[in-house]
Write a protein that binds this DNA or RNA. Structure first.
Lengths: 190, 190, 190, 190
DNA sequence: CATGAATGAGTGTTCATTCAT
DNA sequence: GATGAATGAACACTCATTCAT
């Protein structure tokens, strides 16, 4: 009995995920520049040729990995997706974001490092911009409706702050006083 | 008759700076990994070989560029170098830092992009750490003597904040509400 | 459907031998230092990259060539490998060695020329020393048990003599009076 | 008062010798392939450009060094240059040759190593052949007039023997039983 | 679907040689 | 005579990608 189309599709998806996982692992260990297709294929126990059956190029593989990470990171923002950010949702977002980061520091350090490389940035910037747009809108509404004088300034300030803190945390998770900093963040929003 | 020693020195210095400038430009555009010596030489209109007359390796070239920028950026911190940060010096530092950034946005965007690439980070991290150490000490004293409860948290929070803001500003100087954000920063320190 | 493992293995072995042959030829003509991977690849009608599919480095290629030749040359020494050299075995060794040399003068001229280049010597000296050690022991026993006064001197003298004769023969096989010289060698051992 | 032409010539010759000495020193230390003109010039305290004032190319410099060594090695053969080798002159030649080798092992090891590299061999072979020819004639006469049956075989045998011994001695001067071997050589000629 | 041999353009680096000064 | 900046071809080696099987 031949497999159904869905079964094939599922097998394909599992393989792709396996390749993504392995690739990310190696990139985290050895850096993007030192991660060759050959290494990924070897560690994933498949042939180089087969790699190209699943991803049309190294670039596409990267895209795929980065998009996956980006989505995980924004999932906690306005979780009910109603376009309105309540006070609770804001605090939830902060906590959850750091929980996500903390759950796999190695992944996220790697993620940020990769993300900040210009060639990678160039690849996924369009996707990020498109996805981020509604979130920035929502954030603006949040600050505006909470009586902040310059919601625009607040959004940018807050985004920069979160990025800076996330970056520092992820770069030096051991030494970073995460709890203290989180507390400061929460208090700033009250 | 050969040139005088000064003439040679001058030629060398000019060429080195020219190479550094071109290199930074390309690295910022295409990333460290994609910046080959060949590309740098071509854009600088010199031969590949000449590069190695001035920098012993690609690494040394990177170091040279990054250290130069890093020093410019920290010059304004505790300018009288007495190890004590007054209130005024703190405000001065913030203003001056952004002035420096603003004075050559293109350079600093490049600088940050380059700095955040893992290969580069690895290269100059030791230098940065060594240089930063006394500054962090000074900052700790500042927060401690100004009655902050957790000076440690404050230092890290402040550093992360400045990095985040600097990064965002430099990545989107046009759209970034710099004056409003600076005001917020100053007010936070009062 | 991919090739079977045996098919791949066969392709690999053939290619490796082909590369070794071509490499030895060029090295003999132009010296180790002047033999580039590019030249080898070109003459072997393969791409540079493929070289590295079969040999991990230029050094490994050299090792591979030299070890192969060295082994062929020592096969005839103490052929029953009992650690004892009879009179007959000694004479057999001399004759066989020159037979081997004579059977492919071109190869052996190349081999000696390559072997005597310092870069190459450095590479395989450890291997040679390790392999030669028991042979020298055996030769010492031979001279000692045949009543020679200074077996140590005899071993070194004989080795030097054989090397010298082999070298001269191989460098000028046409003009070298091999039979006469062999006769002298045999008579010296009686 | 300007220098006379001879004075200039003498200065030139001294410089050239100084360069040869330095070059040989470096080659002996680091091998031929790793000896660059830049290194030689630096160690000789002159500029790269000036090197080319004295030697038209690296090849010519090599030639110059090798010829010098070759001459020193053959000086002791038939010292009165009468084309006839007496018994005493033969023994003198053997002793003197090894004295010369012993006087600067490092030089001669280097010399042989360099000499045996095909590219070098190619360069000075014509010179060597031309110079060696009369010596071989003289040696033939020696063996012929001393009643050897096949003078031709004896010449080649003896030359091969001397080369082999010289090579072994120079490659492992510490371990080589020179005195014992020399004694054997002398006795073979009686 | 799966393999890995094969390619070719690319990498950082070296160095003999030239030449304006 | 003397300098060293400048060149350009060469080097060993890497790797994303293709394709016959």
């Amino acid at each position: 009995m031949p497999r159904t189309e869905e079964q094939y599709e599922q097998i394909r998806e599992e393989r792709k995920q396996q390749i993504r996982d392995v690739a990310l692992e190696i990139i985290a260990e050895e850096g993007f520049a030192n991660t060759s297709i050959a290494k990924i294929a070897k560690r994933a126990n498949i042939s180089k040729g087969l790699m190209y059956n699943y991803f049309t190029s190294k670039e596409e593989l990267m895209m795929s990995i980065m998009v996956e990470g980006f989505n995980k990171l924004t999932e906690a923002f306005d979780p009910d997706r109603d376009g309105v950010l309540t006070h609770d949702e804001m605090h939830f977002f902060i906590d959850t974001t750091f929980d996500v980061l903390k759950s796999n520091i190695r992944f996220w350090r790697m993620y940020f490092m990769v993300l900040l490389q210009p060639d990678v940035t160039k690849l996924i910037e369009p996707y990020i911009m498109k996805t981020l747009e509604p979130f920035l809108q929502t954030a603006y509404q949040y600050f505006a409706s909470n009586g902040y004088e310059n919601p625009d300034v607040e959004v940018r300030f807050f985004a920069a702050l979160l990025d800076g803190v996330g970056l520092h945390f992820v770069m030096d998770a051991e030494g970073f006083p995460l709890e203290g900093v989180k507390e400061k963040l929460h208090r700033m929003l009250d």
